[in-house]
Design a protein around this nucleic acid. Structure first.
Lengths: 210, 210
DNA sequence: GTCTATAAAGGGATAGAC
DNA sequence: GTCTATCCCTTTATAGAC
């Protein structure tokens, strides 16, 4: 009706206000409770709208879930893994990269997204791919590119940059990630993080120094 | 009734036949569908019993779930990580350990247990601890003990055996595990597994050789 | 102990008024 | 577009017969 008079905002841009409000509520509920335990009632209540309104903006629970999981974290990962330290000092570059990787990895919201993505991977296979591409794959590519460049410049000896990148990330991830996911609450404090990052850098350099 | 005449089997030993049958069905359904999506109906149907029978043997869904998750995999991890190669050859020992670790890590059933444990970690915190102790912690302890011994024998230089163990495991786990959990289906075949294990051994030795 | 049948509650989704 | 009220289905769990 009058809709024709109002030029709609760009196709998939900003977001119709109320939709954003609902999406934020969905994120809160899903990340805290998981897909199965979250109810549309709870999401509507949290958003402060009725369920009918909710269904006016989104097709159903699954679409809402997909929107949350494939949400803004992809851009997070991209920003936070941009080169920062001078490329001619591998130790400094690796340490900087490691610190930012660990900070992202252990961010409470990132942990929650990881939990539900992995937990629902069987039910939502495409979501798993999206998540992997949006986060983990990005980090790997960034580090691989750096290692390849450092090798070309003769500053590191890295015959297989992609594999070396996985190794470096793994040395930091494995001691910290699962404990955090399960909330074991031991061995994941800032002190340990620093120790683990430093150790990964040392081991990596010992193996790949020119 | 006549039950008094039959000496009951040891307290928590073998298992009352039908209970085992139900537990097997529960395992199948939970591992395939997760906690939320699994229904007691499906479990009863799979077990070939009525729901009433099911509830006669187990308190409810949560108990069944806990029994499945904290099930026989703990003993699996223990058996499969026993030393196998001669202790005086670190390369052979690490390779053997690595191969068995990866095989366990990527076993379809182990992947399923990991998915649901991590996915339901918020709802069942104690289950997370149980899982960690029964699996990951065991592997870490075994490898740590081996590295400490090898260091004492002067065959490796390992100032911090526990951390070194995490690093070695991480170099194999990170390239393979998440891809398998999400069924990305790329980079996790036997060929890649072998490459990754060999590379982890080389990097580890380069950093810790005496 | 085991079954059939059912109770009791909660969930996703929608109809209809405004 | 938004709300209230409700439909309809599935789910967990149990009562009662055998």
């Amino acid at each position: 009706m009058a809709q024709a008079d109002i030029p709609p905002s760009r196709p998939d841009a900003p977001l119709p206000a109320k939709a954003a409000q609902i999406l934020a509520a969905a994120k809160e509920v899903f990340l805290q409770q998981g897909f199965g335990a979250a109810s549309m009632d709870a999401i509507a209540r949290t958003a402060g709208v009725s369920k009918a309104t909710l269904y006016a903006h989104f097709q159903g629970k699954e679409e809402l879930f997909a929107r949350v999981v494939s949400g803004e974290w992809a851009s997070h990962w991209k920003q936070e893994t941009e080169p920062e330290a001078p490329a001619d000092d591998p130790r400094a570059a690796l340490e900087s990269f490691g610190r930012r990787f660990v900070a992202l990895l252990l961010h409470p919201e990132a942990l929650a997204i990881y939990r539900i993505t992995v937990g629902e991977a069987v039910r939502f296979p495409e979501l798993g791919r999206l998540f992997f591409e949006g986060g983990p794959a990005t980090v790997r590519r960034r580090l691989t590119a750096y290692l390849a460049a450092a090798a070309s410049a003769g500053r590191l000896r890295v015959p297989d940059p992609a594999l070396a990148a996985e190794q470096f990330l793994g040395m930091m991830q494995t001691p910290l990630h699962l404990r955090s996911l399960l909330d074991i609450g031991e061995g994941t404090g800032p002190r340990e993080q620093a120790r683990i990052i430093a150790a990964a850098v040392e081991t990596f350099l010992a193996a790949h120094r020119t």
